[in-house]
């Protein structure tokens, strides 16, 4: 088991077809070359954790997948369909749920309105109910303005917003950022409950959370993939962590 996971390469894995594939993706913020040829796969039903230092290009990778930033080179495919040139809403409608780094809940809308807005054609009431079940805290606050919620509750709204549709893939950007440890545990529990029912590409700096959720790990540094393998492998390799994640040796 361990030997097969170690042998996995970033781009071509045997067995299952990837849900998401990035091949040699380049993107820019203004004139800064941020992603310099990123390639990796996300396999169905698994949680792939995107690791790397601040500024390595993790958030940019998610934004480029969504089309919020144009990929100037390379291709991005979801279930084999090329979405590199599609507009943001078209990309998302192929079945992507996005939980952004800063949550970006709509402060002036109620919790309920935030979730209803996220429902795409075909979204069922049952899924909405399940999203509420996952976060009992939100259930009783449906009529409350999202702007009046605590940071943790806002994070729950942001995650719930990605769960109200029958998505192929969730892109989740640093769900633990700026949250108290108790709340991080709550969020982790919720995501563990989601895990297995859907495919997730997770950006996370908090190694404990990454370990709890991750199956596969992709490490990027300076806009390039420097390591791809299993999460267990990264967890056990302190040298790797020290080199690319800025943990261990020099925190």
């Amino acid at each position: 088991m361990t030997s097969t996971t170690i042998e996995r390469s970033a781009t071509a894995r045997t067995g299952t077809e990837p849900i998401l594939r990035l091949a040699n993706v380049h993107s820019y913020i203004a004139e800064s070359h941020i992603l310099q040829g990123i390639s990796f796969d996300v396999l169905p039903g698994r949680v792939t954790v995107l690791l790397g230092r601040n500024g390595a290009g993790k958030t940019t990778t998610l934004r480029t997948i969504l089309g919020l930033l144009p990929a100037r080179e390379g291709t991005i495919t979801l279930d084999g369909a090329n979405l590199t040139r599609d507009s943001v809403h078209a990309v998302v409608r192929r079945g992507i749920g996005y939980v952004p780094e800063d949550r970006d809940v709509f402060a002036g809308l109620t919790v309920e309105q935030n979730l209803r807005l996220a429902q795409r054609p075909g979204a069922t009431g049952e899924r909405l109910a399940r999203a509420y079940d996952l976060f009992p805290d939100l259930k009783k606050r449906g009529a409350q303005r999202a702007g009046s919620l605590s940071g943790g509750q806002q994070q729950m709204v942001a995650i719930a917003r990605a769960l109200v549709n029958d998505n192929r893939l969730l892109l989740i950007d640093e769900p633990s950022k700026g949250l108290a440890p108790v709340v991080v545990n709550q969020v982790t529990e919720a995501l563990v409950a989601v895990k297995g029912t859907t495919t997730i590409l997770l950006v996370e700096q908090n190694l404990a959370m990454a370990r709890a959720l991750g199956d596969d790990a992709v490490i990027i540094d300076d806009g390039r993939v420097v390591h791809a393998g299993s999460m267990d492998e990264v967890s056990g390799d302190e040298a790797l962590q020290a080199r690319y994640l800025g943990v261990g040796g020099h925190a």
Binding site: V88, V92, L117, R120
Partner: peptide
């Protein structure tokens, strides 16, 4: 209303 707050996030919800 959501678009007035954050256009990009509305797009990211799959809305044209």
């Amino acid at each position: 209303r959501a678009g007035a707050e954050n256009r990009e996030m509305v797009r990211a919800l799959g809305i044209d």
